[in-house]
């Protein structure tokens, strides 16, 4: 067991302790702080595993962006409000499922560890290698799609975050913008309107009226021509 192992064990233990804190501590702020701690420890493990770039990303995105978002929402809602939320329920069944996951995961872990060839041709990750994949060849399209996903998430957040969450139908929209959503009747002019009355008594909006009038005029002009 060398130094790297000892360090990794230590970091792993810290990660677990912090994760336990996330799950078990009542205070949301404390949970968030524990989460930050676990992210930092994981970042260290990534470093030891030989992924320096990813370790940096972990800290930048998780600790820097996501956790700030969490804390921002917590503060927005108010720490006192969150304190009123009950801690947990269904803990028996939840623990049972978590335990089952542990057992199954352990079995899978052993399989995975024994299956891995003792390949120590230490190819370490480099930024150039990752960039090559993401920007030049291999995963360029998925990476672009990820960008679209993020954009979609952004739009979703803006919509969901609107203060007015009332459901609005097309008809509402139409009413507010003053036009009749019914299909326009333009095929036939009114059969007979000698006294000049509009046969489309029900269709009182402008477009149809205008259409009917136009058709009627056309009719009249035909008669005049005769």
């Amino acid at each position: 067991m060398n130094f790297a192992d000892i360090l990794a064990y230590t970091l792993g233990a810290a990660t677990l302790a912090a994760a336990l804190g996330v799950v078990l501590r009542r205070d949301a702020v404390v949970a968030a702080m524990n989460l930050v701690l676990s992210f930092f420890c994981l970042s260290g493990i990534y470093l030891i595993l030989g992924f320096p770039f990813l370790a940096a990303i972990q800290i930048l995105v998780y600790a820097g962006a996501i956790m700030v978002l969490f804390l921002f929402v917590i503060m927005l809602l108010g720490v006192s409000t969150l304190a009123r939320t009950p801690v947990g329920a269904r803990s028996g069944l939840g623990a049972a499922i978590a335990l089952a996951v542990v057992v199954e995961g352990a079995v899978l872990s052993v399989k995975l560890a024994s299956g891995a060839a003792a390949n120590t041709a230490a190819t370490t990750e480099t930024v150039a290698g990752v960039s090559e994949l993401l920007f030049k060849q291999g995963l360029v399209l998925p990476f672009e799609i990820t960008g679209v996903v993020l954009l979609a998430a952004m739009v979703a957040v803006v919509v969901i975050g609107r203060r007015d969450l009332r459901v609005r139908s097309v008809a509402d929209f139409a009413r507010e913008h003053a036009f009749d959503p019914r299909p326009l009747v333009t095929s036939m002019p009114p059969p007979a309107a000698p006294d000049g009355l509009d046969a489309h008594g029900l269709h009182t909006n402008g477009i149809i009226k205008n259409n009917a009038r136009a058709a009627g005029e056309h009719h009249n002009s035909e008669e005049i021509a005769k």
Binding site: A89, R90, L93, I97, E104, V107
Partner: peptide
């Protein structure tokens, strides 16, 4: 939400157990 998730999780665990 979480009680639905509970049963979903139980099903997933059972499925993995069966595969294992």
């Amino acid at each position: 939400l979480q009680s639905y998730s509970l049963w979903f999780g139980a099903g997933a665990v059972a499925l993995v157990a069966a595969v294992l």
